[in-house]
Nucleic acid binder design. Sequence first.
DNA 1: TGCGTTAGTAAGGAAGGTCTACTAACAAAC
DNA 2: GTTTGTTAGTAGACCTTCCTTACTAACGCA
Lengths: 408, 408
Amino acid sequence: MTTSTPQLPFAPGPAGQAGHTGTAGRGLGRVLRPMVKVLPEHARAHNRALVLQQLFHSGPTSRADLARATELTRVTVSDLVAELIVEGLVAERGVRAEARVGKPAKLVGMCTEDFQIVAIDLADDASFRGAVMSLVGEVLVRRSVAVEGRTGADALELLAQLAAELVAAATRPVIGVGIGSPGVVDREGVVVEAPNRDWYGVPLAHDLTTRLGTPVHVANDANTRALGEYTYGGASGEGLLVLIVGQGVGAGIVVDGMLLKGHRDAAGELGHVTVVDARDERPGDPEPVVCACGRSGCLETVLSVPALRRAVEGLAPEDSDVVLASVGRKLGIVLAPVVSALNLAEVLLSGPSELLDGPLREAALATVRERTMPVVGDQLSLRMATLGEDAALSGAAVLVLSGQLGVT
Amino acid sequence: MTTSTPQLPFAPGPAGQAGHTGTAGRGLGRVLRPMVKVLPEHARAHNRALVLQQLFHSGPTSRADLARATELTRVTVSDLVAELIVEGLVAERGVRAEARVGKPAKLVGMCTEDFQIVAIDLADDASFRGAVMSLVGEVLVRRSVAVEGRTGADALELLAQLAAELVAAATRPVIGVGIGSPGVVDREGVVVEAPNRDWYGVPLAHDLTTRLGTPVHVANDANTRALGEYTYGGASGEGLLVLIVGQGVGAGIVVDGMLLKGHRDAAGELGHVTVVDARDERPGDPEPVVCACGRSGCLETVLSVPALRRAVEGLAPEDSDVVLASVGRKLGIVLAPVVSALNLAEVLLSGPSELLDGPLREAALATVRERTMPVVGDQLSLRMATLGEDAALSGAAVLVLSGQLGVT
DNA sequence: TGCGTTAGTAAGGAAGGTCTACTAACAAAC
DNA sequence: GTTTGTTAGTAGACCTTCCTTACTAACGCA
């Protein structure tokens, strides 16, 4: 590809899309993606993370294979690996078993046994659940504390204690602490608002980092769960929405390889979209339930776990199926525009499967398919999440892996 | 912030989120955002684009100010500027007028007059519209050709001729050609499918690049328009959806500073979401219109320009207002879940304002507000797009600026 | 006239990655 | 048993990129 007259530059290359803060354009138009300067040392950090990532996902590998996978030279890979070995993150793992031509390869592998992660899930109103986890996502130690109505600073103190206990309970150095919190959490780990805990503008990540002496990463709990499902749940496609059905309803969305945050960091708030229309009411219908948000007809008023349990309570299986299917249809109506707009490949339901994984799921899928164009709907998969209760913990661990090691 | 025992690394820094193709994880979990190696030269290209971007958006600036804005040193900026001057992209613009202490600053500015861009909009079924544009988005020469039913290779040939003519009509060297095409367009500029043109898997960007000898960038027309509105339309917020109402209905979405592509690159296909429910029908309602996609009740059957014109034809103003408001409500019902899920800040309507910018828009906004939680809906702005017919051309120009110069 | 301030450049150095060339260690063919 | 070809890993020279430090030029102000 040769260009004309004056030697015009090509596209900015791999580093062209980096950064997240900085220079705001004033004069002419606006900046699509704010940029930050990149130094050679940043490139180095990037390449180091690349090697580590390869090692993490593919297990022990020879330096030569790493070079082929990363497209760096063997020399550079050796250098990076040496650095990682000095840091204790990587170690030699003997020679490759298979007999091949040439000098036998010395495998190097990530020291997944030598470090641990602390993960905490604050989604439950009644208790804080935490765990010490291995780098590969296994839960090693569980611990939870009853909240007993604590809010504000008291709840913070309780959380800090739980985190400290878990860090102490770890049998290996802790890389970091990951926390999934309800409410709106910004990119810096500040809990902008979490009404249930009475937290407003709490710089959770920063405060706990200084208090624990260990890096702390915080994200919204639905996003955390989505991250867990995306990373460990065997999601196949590129566009993924994880719908969390619990006390309320929330969602985390991964599109184009990244977690959506949204303007004001409140992406995924699907619980308070209206689904029950006044005009839909038929004579004899139950009165529309008033939602916690003050309005009525919200998705949460029919799809949350309490609402579902109340709706099917004491009903015969057939009747309960009808009720669940009706809720599924409402869900489908809400999902259809989202699935279309984002061209999603998968929607996962996370919550009690005895309620969700039957007529409700089937009706929701059928409704989405009915209401979207075939090329969108037919390729959609709508199924149960695979990770259950520990999705949030896994996701919190991913937060740390990604934030501290650059491994995703 | 000191970390414990072994010297653990910090987050990967500015370059941590780069790249788009490469290594797929196999073993443990999956990669959130595939990474590519970064070399010093890529860092250089990035920093060069950073300087250029600053110059583009802020107009003529001194090297010292550029250094402050980019956080690079004066030395580095001088070096980069020298390179840009050699390439002819930047030139000295005399000294700064204001009298200040110290040595007077020599301003350097981008040579926005010395290069041009060719932009082409294929959205219209009947004709291909193109223009030679300045780097700041002004249309200098317009040219359009009637399609006259041509499809497939014939339509391609027509497009190539138009592009070549426009390149020839430019009075300055052409940086690149930007094209907004209907249908699904992937990241490489391949038109995956565009039924109206009978294009399937046409590598438009690549073919035209070789044919014209000038870099060609192609994107979906709705995305292109969204890009234009985002860059030149004075959009304020971070989450933006531009709804294009024309022969059909489509949308382009900018969230978290990037244009959404979606799994299969079909994000934004809102035209074929069902909005007219069978059970909504009242006695006397008109028969639901069968859509081009074969189903019925699609948004497109009520919101497209032909549908709207047909609906208000011959009606008294009051009656037509009622009809338009009714369509607006349907639009609001579709938008509410999308606005909530993505936490959008703005929705822009692009199309004939005599139809859209009245009861329709007002009803849509009111409906979205009714059906979303206050924190989402109250901050939403739903207004007319400002760029009109030329939005697609502007967006195509942005495609080129971004692709060739790294300027957005 | 002298002093402090600001703009821009020159020279040297540190860090990163590549290329080329080398050694080590093996399988398979002779 | 030796030779040949292949693969793994390392050493050294080189290029690029940016930084730091030190300098000159040009101004306002006292």
